[in-house]
Design a protein around this nucleic acid. Sequence first.
DNA 1: ATTGAAGTACACG
DNA 2: CTAACGCGTGTACTTCAAT
Length: 360
Amino acid sequence: MQERIIMLLDMDAFFAEIEERESPQFQGKPVVVGADPQEGKGRGVVSTCNYKARKFGIHSAMPISQAYHLCPQAVFLPVNMALYSRVSERVMKIIQKVCKGCLVEQVFLDEAYIDFVLFPTIVKNKTKEKENAWRGAEMLAKKLTMDILEQEKLTCSIGIGSNKMVAKIACQAAKPNGIKVVEPKDTISFLSPLHIREIPGIGPKADIKLQDFFKTNAVSIEKLREASKQDLISLFGVIGNSIYEKARGRDTVLVTPEHEIKSIGKEHTFFKDTRDPEELLAVFEDLLCEVQDEIHKSKLQFRTITVVCRFQGFTTYTKSKTVDKNLFTELFFKEAKKLLLRFVVEQLKPVRLIGVRVKV
DNA sequence: ATTGAAGTACACG
DNA sequence: CTAACGCGTGTACTTCAAT
């Protein structure tokens, strides 16, 4: 494959920065966007918090109750997804405009990968094409951060590398409000000292497996390169091969602008665990209606219904049923309720969460 | 022998 | 006491049964 220049733009503390921008009285204060803390009794988690709040040890995905104990005086706000969606659309428009002729892949609301394949000014620079291309990308990154700051009063960080993985890790290193360029010749030295958790796809479980394998409690990417391809395949199966490649700064995943939807689902966690069939069914019917709405909007055909049930103690089970796609519409409610009923019959424990998901 | 359905595990923002 | 742990989406694995 030809050498690529890939950029990842990631908005800094997106939800929290938007809330600060909208309400000047929050400026300079720790802001936590997420579930209602309910005086420390809330059951949800932190969605995003600003850098002030991070100084108290708060971070995204942390239980909101814990965040409350770390900093009760912080501003706690509910997630206003409709607002963030509108802001995201405007940010993405700026990116499209500045990066005309490039491939742009949006990831959720606050990230976008950009592949410079056809970036016109780069293509035009026939002389010293290679150096100019990387400098051109860096200048473009600068323009993006300036335009987004001027037009939306929000900061972002940008990573540039020869593939998605390097761009992503470079972006993390640039945060907040920075730009980091990692050219191919610098990739290995850039990655070597970093912790393996920086590699996208290596989560808590994979980290522990690798700690056990190397008999240390902090594995660097340099250390990871000591594992053979066979070692990694026996530890992780098919994934092992891509981990082996990523440790060497290689990643062939393409920037793909269009993604077709493969599943749609809704879940609900009860304020208090319940076994009341009336309550369960009432909430479940609401979920089914919401999913039905989304199915309608998507105009897609689905065939598999999965019902999820999480019980007291956090153990989670799923049951699913695949039907003929032509009969899906008429069977959806009936089959979903049948699956839920099986849980109610089989399980005696109180229910913490119920959910439903449909797959293509 | 291959496919596909069901259920679980893991990851990410 | 032994924690606390949402939601939506994706990939991949294991197991078992049907074609």
